[in-house]
Amino acid sequence: MKFKKIFSKKNCLLAIIIFTCIYLYFFLNQIINNLPDVRKIKNIQLRSPVKIFYNNQKLSIQFNIHEYHPITIKNFPKKLIQTFLIVEDSNFYIHHGFDLKGIIRAISNMIISGHISQGASTITQQLARNFFLSSEKNIIRKIKEILLAIKIENFFSKKEILELYLNKICLGENCYGVSEAAKKYFNKTLNQLTLSETAILAGLPKNPFIYNPIKSIKKTKKRRDIILKRMLYKNIISKKEYNIAKKTIILNNSHYKLIHIKDN
Rank of each mutant, 00 (worst) to 15 (best):
A120F: 01
R39W: 00
L100A: 13
I139L: 15
I44S: 01
R39D: 10
I236F: 02
I81V: 12
T83D: 02
T189Y: 09
K158P: 02
K239F: 06
S157A: 07
L14T: 06
N191V: 03
I152C: 06
E67M: 11
N34D: 13
A245L: 08
F53C: 03
I6R: 13
I152H: 07
I250W: 06
I116H: 06
A149N: 03
I16D: 06
K101E: 11
N207A: 15
L133H: 10
I71F: 00
H255S: 14
E180M: 15
A106C: 10
A202P: 06
R141M: 04
N253M: 05
N56G: 07
I104Y: 12
T122Y: 12
E136I: 08
E173M: 12
R39P: 05
N191Y: 11
I104L: 15
K4E: 13
I44D: 01
I123H: 05
P208N: 05
F19S: 11
R224M: 10
P205Y: 00
P77Y: 08
Q82T: 04
L133C: 05
V50T: 09
Y165N: 06
Q118E: 15
N109R: 12
L251A: 03
E197Y: 06
S179A: 15
H260A: 10
N64G: 02
T83G: 02
N174I: 09
S117Y: 09
K74A: 11
F98L: 02
Y256N: 15
R129D: 01
P77R: 03
H255G: 00
K4R: 14
L85S: 06
H260N: 15
I150E: 05
Q118T: 15
L13P: 00
L232F: 06
L46N: 09
F98D: 02
V178P: 01
L228G: 04
I210V: 12
I250G: 03
I104P: 00
S157F: 00
F132D: 03
E67K: 14
E197C: 11
N56F: 12
E197F: 07
C170W: 15
R141D: 04
S90G: 01
K240A: 06
N138T: 10
Y54F: 11
I16A: 15
R230I: 14
V87S: 09
F53S: 05
Q30D: 12
T20C: 13
I217T: 11
F84Y: 10
L258R: 03
N174C: 07
A202N: 09
I150V: 15
K51S: 14
K184C: 15
P36C: 10
Y25P: 01
I140T: 07
R224L: 02
I61V: 15
L164M: 12
D37K: 10
K234E: 13
A245M: 00
V50K: 11
H255Y: 11
K9C: 11
Q62A: 07
I259V: 10
N167L: 01
N55S: 13
K9M: 13
L24A: 04
I52H: 00
M110R: 07
V178Q: 03
L46H: 08
I250Y: 08
L13A: 14
T124D: 08
N252R: 12
Q118V: 10
L232P: 00
R47Y: 03
M110Q: 09
A202T: 06
L14H: 05
S179R: 04
S254H: 10
Q45N: 14
